[in-house]
């Protein structure tokens, strides 16, 4: 165990150093030239060239043709956000609670809300500044409605430093939702299995 005493010992050289086995540096011109040739002229160069040639001729290329081709991404990967809709009805899930806005540690979520004609809270505008987002996943985890989730789109190149993404861009297309083409998001913030067994039921008078 270390104690304060060891820390207070500022004389670190005492018995603390050992030598690493490093060959001597070339000193003379001749020694240097010898090192250059011995390193440059080696058969390995041609091994590499041979493999490339061979694979070219075989036409069996394993390189992913990005961006034409993309690898599938793990469900827990946290890329650009998506806003989910409810299954069947297609209603937007976000209720405008503002928890994602509050929890976001890089303070990049902002939303405007108002009361709508049916006296409900309506999200009129919602943005994420992807230039600041660190894709920590807190917003998805805190969302009580499983509305905001992380999607698989990981390309964020932009001509601007501040790259905003709006509500519309994130929202699942209505058709996909009603046709049941969106699966429940299994990633960050999704409910854990066996949740039903853990809740106590509330009596009902119906």
């Amino acid at each position: 165990m270390m104690s304060l005493k060891e820390f207070e010992n500022r004389n670190v050289s005492e018995g603390a150093y050992y030598k690493v086995d490093i060959p001597d540096y070339p000193e003379t011109g001749w020694e240097k030239a010898k090192q250059v040739f011995s390193r440059a002229i080696k058969g390995e160069l041609f091994v590499g060239l041979y493999i490339v040639m061979r694979e070219m001729i075989k036409f069996d290329i394993h390189t992913v043709q990005y961006p034409k081709e993309k690898l599938p991404i793990g469900p827990r990967y946290r890329a650009v956000h998506e806003m989910q809709r409810l299954w069947e009805s297609g209603t937007e899930r976000c209720i405008g609670c503002g928890l994602c806005e509050k929890i976001c540690i890089s303070d990049c979520i902002r939303m405007d809300t108002k009361i709508d004609e049916q006296s409900r809270k309506q999200v009129t505008e919602y943005t994420i500044n992807l230039g600041r987002c660190i894709f920590c996943g807190y917003c998805a985890e805190v969302c009580p409605e499983l509305a905001i989730v992380h999607g698989g789109r990981y390309e964020n190149t932009s001509e601007q430093r501040a790259h905003y993404i709006g509500y519309e861009d994130m929202l699942t297309p209505f058709d996909m939702a009603v046709k049941g083409q969106v699966a429940e998001y299994p990633g960050f913030g999704a409910i854990t299995p066996h949740e039903d067994e853990r809740v106590k039921s509330t009596p009902l008078a119906y």
């Binding site: 609670c97 509050k102 108002k114 009361i115 409900r120 309506q122």
Partner: peptide
């Protein structure tokens, strides 16, 4: 009503 959370 519904224009802002108190904590903001």
């Amino acid at each position: 009503q519904y224009t802002s959370n108190a904590w903001e």
